[in-house]
Write a protein that binds this DNA or RNA. Sequence first.
DNA 1: GATACCGGTATCCTACGGGATACTGCTATC
DNA 2: GATAGCAGTATCCCGTAGGATACCGGTATC
Lengths: 137, 137
Amino acid sequence: MEEIHGDVSKEICMKSLDAVKDALYAVNGKWKLPIIIALSEGPRRFKELQRALDDITPKMLSKELKEMELNEFITRTVYDTTPVTVEYALTPYSGSLKEVILSLRDWGIEHKKHLQSKCRERKKPAHAQVAAKVEVA
Amino acid sequence: MEEIHGDVSKEICMKSLDAVKDALYAVNGKWKLPIIIALSEGPRRFKELQRALDDITPKMLSKELKEMELNEFITRTVYDTTPVTVEYALTPYSGSLKEVILSLRDWGIEHKKHLQSKCRERKKPAHAQVAAKVEVA
DNA sequence: GATACCGGTATCCTACGGGATACTGCTATC
DNA sequence: GATAGCAGTATCCCGTAGGATACCGGTATC
């Protein structure tokens, strides 16, 4: 155990815990990332989103969209057509998520590799090796 | 809507979604971060951890430690003393989390500031302004 | 001999995330 | 007049995360 990790959390520390939790909360839930991905190709209407998201129930979609609007990741625009048109779009501010999401993605990719290499070390096939929900297929 | 966010998720894309989810999973749950923080000051025994973590129930502690051991964030070492001593310690590999956690923390801090400035814009005191669980105190 | 500490496990229970289904008011089309 | 689309809301239901409590076998202490 070298000192590599010795201060991982001196820097994180209790005071930063809340900030990390806030960030995690903003991006978790089953649908927030998929919604961001869907909207990244341009504004979408409610039903369009619903169809794009493998038929998410309207309740969940509505709830997630409201939260994301509060967090200013998206805007909700009502056009006074008949029938009314409601369009959701990413805000410029949502771009601030890019860095942190890419960071998560990169770590996730490396982590999967890491677990796979550990699997190969033990020659045992060990039917369905899984480490804490990351499927090492 | 400038193009700032236009490709936020071209890069993330569906193929990366799983990696992001894996990363989120590895670090969420109520206790994983606190455990990492506690262990960052050095190896700890089971009961020491339990006391350090505001009396987390042994069931939860045991479960979280097992998951973290599978993910190779920590090691579990049994010393053959009487009574037996079990020591948990961070692995060097756990240091790989540092970058991603700091990224989350930084974004969380900026996000809180962002929401606070939005609160000030609208002069309304709006008793207990909260945006999607981030308390803007 | 009774109590306390250690490292957990087992059992029960609740709260919340999230899904299924049904329904609303309005309009346009057949 | 019936059906279908839009943008949701309301109600019920279930599975899991996580807490409370009790308990185990072992040793050391009073």
